[in-house]
Design a protein around this nucleic acid. Sequence first.
DNA 1: CGCTATCTACCGTTTGGTAGATAAGAACGT
DNA 2: ACGTTCTTATCTACCAAACGGTAGATAGCG
Lengths: 191, 191
Amino acid sequence: MPPATGRRRLPLAERREEILKAATELIAASGFKGVTLEAFAEACGMTKAGLLHHFRSRDDLLIAVLERRDELDLTTVVDTLEPVSGPAASRAVMTRFVRRNLGQRSLVQLYTVLAAEAIDPAHPAHDYFRTRLREGRAMLEHSLLSWHPHPGLAAVELLAFLDGLQLNWLRDPDIDYLAQWQSFADRFFTA
Amino acid sequence: MPPATGRRRLPLAERREEILKAATELIAASGFKGVTLEAFAEACGMTKAGLLHHFRSRDDLLIAVLERRDELDLTTVVDTLEPVSGPAASRAVMTRFVRRNLGQRSLVQLYTVLAAEAIDPAHPAHDYFRTRLREGRAMLEHSLLSWHPHPGLAAVELLAFLDGLQLNWLRDPDIDYLAQWQSFADRFFTA
DNA sequence: CGCTATCTACCGTTTGGTAGATAAGAACGT
DNA sequence: ACGTTCTTATCTACCAAACGGTAGATAGCG
């Protein structure tokens, strides 16, 4: 590693990834509105102008952060696409989802904080979350269709609980995320 | 009513209330970081300087908004203080809480958006939510103590579900808030 | 040496907040 | 009823700092 002072020149892809990683942490901590362009730059040891060489604008950076998160999730999504049926299988899929979140606290926080911020229709990520969450609910509802008496109600209930649990876990890390999930699932998946 | 143009001079208490009401709506819509001092002022037909005559700073206004919300909730809190015991009584209390929220969408949104924004320790309302939510959970846990086998788990679960349901209801008003609650409660209060 | 990632310097706008002028309305005497 | 005075709610004008973004100079690496 070269001395911390002075200029560091990195290949395009590497620097891009470094910026996105840092930006994810910052947004997770303070929301998108709460972080300035300069703060994003400083977090990876460069200036605003330097950062804007990689992303055309601040909003552009946000979109890139979200797309990166999607890419990181791709593995899980692919797994979920396997056609599953029955309560046990559904529960297993969701449990794996919970376990993965447990180890990606900052990504979860990014998503949670940003999703709440983006309730505002004027937020640059409003549409992103709108379509994305709608799709998620539809997929879940579809997988509940084969065995649950009220797939619509149940899908909303499950997602609401997970959203709320994440939110509370972020507020208070002492909460036992996994145990809470199992406790909920014990009742939910015996209907 | 005097003509809309020109200066309107109101008694202190009245203007204060008007400002707080307008601010509540705005914060609910766009979060606290998302609204400028001038926007707050303009919303009740005055200038920044005029508003700052009533609230020393922008952060001061936020605190006042939250305190006002607490006062508006006081009635419900007092009701809750009646010592209740048993699942049916607990459920009745919570159902009343849900029903009341149903008619106060903008207050719910204020609380939800702000609570998520305030996960950031640097947010001006961070401490407010920290203590307030902790208290709420303790109260609930206490009331579950007499009949629920796992009061700690259950308290978190119930609050998480309500938080998440509110969040999703705000994102998608078509969700049947009340029905979702009843469906959850049917399982939750038979343990 | 050439390419380009990065920097310095700057711009126009918006931000939260201040200082001092102005006017609305209540109180009061006549 | 009516003017006068006094209080203070509100305004106009302004400021320094912070914001997102641009133009052109500079320097690290193949």
